[in-house]
Simulated scan of single mutants.
Amino acid sequence: MRAIDLSTVTWRKSSYSNQDGGQCIEVTDDFPAVVPVRDSKAPHGPALLFGASAWASFVTAVKSGELPGA
């Protein structure tokens, strides 16, 4: 897999993140095939890359309550 430059992307915080700064993730929608995800408390740290279809399945499962603790 080739490297993806994330230095100029626009990140958005998850709507499921709480306001006190705990347990927050950020994602960017700037790539059609992958969804980069990072910890909002460590914006200069690494990002995980998920395939777009895998990420869509995860979001659907969270929204429907299929995941324990979600």
Score class of each variant (00 low, 15 high):
residue 42 A to T: 11
residue 62 V to I: 14
residue 3 A to S: 09
residue 11 W to F: 11
residue 60 T to G: 14
residue 34 V to G: 13
residue 63 K to Q: 12
residue 55 W to D: 06
residue 23 Q to L: 06
residue 18 N to L: 07
residue 68 P to T: 02
residue 20 D to A: 11
residue 52 A to K: 11
residue 29 D to I: 00
residue 40 S to E: 09
residue 4 I to H: 12
residue 5 D to S: 07
residue 55 W to I: 09
residue 64 S to A: 09
residue 23 Q to C: 04
residue 51 G to R: 13
residue 15 S to F: 01
residue 25 I to E: 03
residue 27 V to Q: 08
residue 2 R to V: 06
residue 36 P to G: 11
residue 67 L to C: 02
residue 69 G to C: 08
residue 38 R to Y: 01
residue 3 A to T: 09
residue 56 A to R: 13
residue 5 D to F: 07
residue 8 T to I: 01
residue 58 F to W: 12
residue 31 F to L: 12
residue 1 M to D: 11
residue 26 E to Q: 15
residue 51 G to S: 12
residue 63 K to R: 13
residue 19 Q to W: 01
residue 5 D to E: 09
residue 9 V to M: 11
residue 46 P to G: 13
residue 41 K to V: 09
residue 2 R to T: 13
residue 13 K to S: 01
residue 6 L to P: 00
residue 69 G to W: 08
residue 17 S to Q: 04
residue 44 H to P: 00
residue 33 A to V: 10
residue 6 L to Q: 05
residue 13 K to L: 06
residue 19 Q to P: 07
residue 23 Q to N: 14
residue 70 A to F: 08
residue 3 A to K: 02
residue 41 K to F: 04
residue 59 V to P: 00
residue 46 P to N: 10
residue 64 S to Q: 11
residue 70 A to T: 12
residue 33 A to M: 14
residue 53 S to G: 10
residue 29 D to Q: 04
residue 27 V to Y: 15
residue 67 L to K: 03
residue 66 E to L: 09
residue 70 A to P: 00
residue 51 G to L: 12
residue 66 E to K: 12
residue 4 I to Y: 09
residue 65 G to C: 03
residue 25 I to V: 14
residue 40 S to C: 05
residue 32 P to V: 00
residue 35 V to K: 12
residue 7 S to P: 13
residue 59 V to T: 08
residue 4 I to V: 15
residue 22 G to S: 15
residue 49 L to T: 10
residue 30 D to W: 10
residue 43 P to T: 00
residue 11 W to L: 09
residue 41 K to W: 03
residue 6 L to N: 03
residue 58 F to T: 09
residue 66 E to M: 06
residue 36 P to F: 05
residue 34 V to P: 13
residue 61 A to N: 08
residue 62 V to N: 03
residue 69 G to E: 03
residue 22 G to Y: 15
residue 54 A to G: 13
residue 10 T to V: 14
residue 2 R to M: 09
residue 68 P to L: 01
residue 60 T to L: 13
residue 70 A to Q: 07
residue 3 A to P: 00
residue 47 A to M: 10
residue 62 V to L: 10
residue 15 S to V: 13
residue 49 L to V: 02
residue 33 A to H: 15
residue 68 P to E: 08
residue 15 S to T: 15
residue 33 A to T: 15
residue 13 K to G: 00
residue 57 S to V: 04
residue 7 S to V: 11
residue 47 A to K: 14
residue 8 T to P: 00
residue 21 G to N: 07
residue 40 S to W: 04
residue 16 Y to I: 08
residue 26 E to N: 05
residue 12 R to A: 04
residue 5 D to G: 05
residue 21 G to Y: 11
residue 22 G to I: 10
residue 48 L to R: 01
residue 13 K to R: 12
residue 50 F to T: 01
residue 24 C to D: 08
residue 49 L to H: 10
residue 22 G to D: 13
residue 29 D to K: 00
residue 46 P to V: 12
residue 69 G to M: 04
residue 29 D to Y: 00
residue 70 A to L: 01
residue 7 S to F: 10
residue 12 R to M: 06
residue 24 C to G: 06
residue 5 D to N: 14
residue 55 W to N: 05
residue 10 T to S: 14
residue 7 S to Y: 06
residue 39 D to Q: 04
residue 9 V to D: 06
residue 44 H to T: 00
residue 26 E to H: 08
residue 17 S to W: 03
residue 35 V to Y: 02
residue 45 G to C: 08
residue 39 D to V: 02
residue 16 Y to G: 06
residue 64 S to L: 07
residue 42 A to F: 03
residue 68 P to C: 02
residue 6 L to T: 04
residue 42 A to S: 04
residue 69 G to K: 04
residue 70 A to I: 01
residue 26 E to P: 02
residue 19 Q to A: 15
residue 33 A to S: 15
